[in-house]
Amino acid sequence: MWDHEIRAMVSTHALIAASMFMATVLPAVFVLSFSVYGTHLLWLYCTSGAVNAVSVVVFWLLGVTPSTKKNTLGYKLSRLFRACLYFFLSCLFFHTVIVLYGAPLIESALETFSLAVLLTSLTTMRCLCVLGPNVQAWIRVFSRHGAMSVWDTCLQITVACTLIGAWVGAFPIPLDWDRPWQVWPVSCSLGATIGYLTGLVAAPTWIHYHRKQLTYKCK
């Protein structure tokens, strides 16, 4: 049951994780004094870009995205436009939430927005890839008992892990240790990344062990 999907999922996740690893290692060749702490924003953009690119390519190749009935170019373009719009809106949404959590409003707005971009590419991008720009489907997936395929469950797990990772990552900030990773937003983005990686590992594992119990009602 679901064996094929699980195998596909494992390879997808391995690809994404590898791309994140490369995004951390490769820029060191091109940029002098590249480090995760020192040039944090650069690392952050590299990782987000890599994850975005790889997810789009992989999911497009896999064909998980629900096929559309209309195949006209105009419709495809409008979908693309909507996806971009949602991406941007989601960045704004995360930015707002982070500010509500207490990030300074004006100073270090760039850092906050970068974190929002990272969170968006780790969570919303995946939603866009799996579900398409369809808010109804998103709401369905994230409400209780709303998953309709293995990919939906996987999405739930990774998104939850990423958000919890970012949430937990904020805890070390008040400690007076004066470490480089306590600088805003390093700990949060690292937390989100680690949470995401955990999610990538946890989702297939969990689904594998619960594959007998998993039943999805169809539309």
Partner: peptide, 17 residues
Amino acid sequence: ASSFVEEEHQTWYFLLN
């Protein structure tokens, strides 16, 4: 952790949010 005692308000604001 004593820092969390000193900065206890941060914990509460965070939890409340």
